[in-house]
Simulated assay, not measured.
Amino acid sequence: MVRIRDAFPGFSVRDIDEARSFYGEILGLEVSDEMGGLRIVLPSGQGVFAYPKDDHEPASFTILNFAVPDLGQAVDDLNAAGVVTKIYTEPHSFGTDERGINWGSRTGQGPDICWFTDPSGNVLSLIGD
């Protein structure tokens, strides 16, 4: 049997400096250089590894979900920092409002959620508690 000491998820980015700034300054997460990439520490203490990839292709699915106590305020904060939260614009796309929020709890269709992308195009979300 393999003896595993730890495990952590990872994803690629096109530019490490851009990712460091976004995850550290915009999202306020602890970020440090590690193994040629970045160790991003989530509020739970779990580490996530972001590594540079020359031919990076953005993930077409949500790679990180951030639980927030006030979804509307969190969206306003991201928008004020220049982050676009309305990434799904077609009328049938998840039923988002003008700020990109899907108020699923109001319709019984899941959680209140808003999607956005990091500078590398990877999809992230904010989910209201």
Rank of each mutant, 00 (worst) to 15 (best):
N122F: 02
W103M: 05
F8V: 02
A81P: 01
P43N: 10
E90D: 15
D76Q: 08
E34S: 15
G100Y: 04
L126Q: 06
P91E: 12
T89A: 08
F22L: 09
D112G: 10
D54A: 14
V68F: 03
F22N: 04
V13T: 15
E30I: 14
R20K: 14
G28A: 11
V13P: 06
N79M: 14
V31I: 11
S32A: 15
A67F: 10
T85P: 03
S125Y: 09
G104V: 03
D97Q: 04
N102I: 00
V123F: 12
D118I: 01
V75C: 04
V13H: 07
I26G: 09
R106A: 10
F11K: 09
G104R: 05
A7W: 14
W103V: 01
P58Q: 04
D33I: 02
S21T: 15
I63K: 00
K53N: 11
R14F: 02
P69H: 02
F116E: 07
Y51L: 05
F116N: 07
R14H: 12
I4S: 13
G121T: 03
E57P: 00
P111C: 09
D77K: 12
G37L: 08
N122E: 06
V68C: 04
F94P: 02
D118L: 02
I127R: 11
D76I: 00
G121L: 11
V123A: 09
I87K: 03
S12R: 10
D15V: 04
S60M: 06
D70I: 01
K86R: 13
D33R: 15
L42N: 07
D112K: 04
K53T: 00
P43D: 10
P91Y: 06
I113E: 13
V48R: 08
T96F: 01
A67H: 13
I101P: 01
D17S: 15
L126F: 02
R5V: 14
V123T: 13
A50L: 11
A80W: 02
I63F: 03
V83I: 07
I113A: 07
L42F: 13
A7P: 06
E18C: 14
A80V: 01
D77N: 11
T117Y: 02
D70A: 12
G110T: 02
A19G: 05
V2M: 14
R20N: 12
F49P: 00
H92P: 00
A19H: 04
V48G: 07
F49M: 13
N102V: 01
S105G: 05
D55Q: 13
C114P: 05
P91V: 05
I40D: 05
G121E: 08
I127M: 14
V2E: 11
I63Y: 04
F8T: 05
P58G: 05
D6Q: 12
F22H: 10
D129W: 11
Q109N: 12
D70Y: 03
F116H: 09
E25F: 10
G104S: 05
F66L: 13
S60K: 13
A74Y: 04
G45F: 11
N65Y: 14
P58L: 03
R5P: 00
F8I: 03
S120W: 02
Q73I: 00
D33Y: 13
T85K: 02
G72M: 01
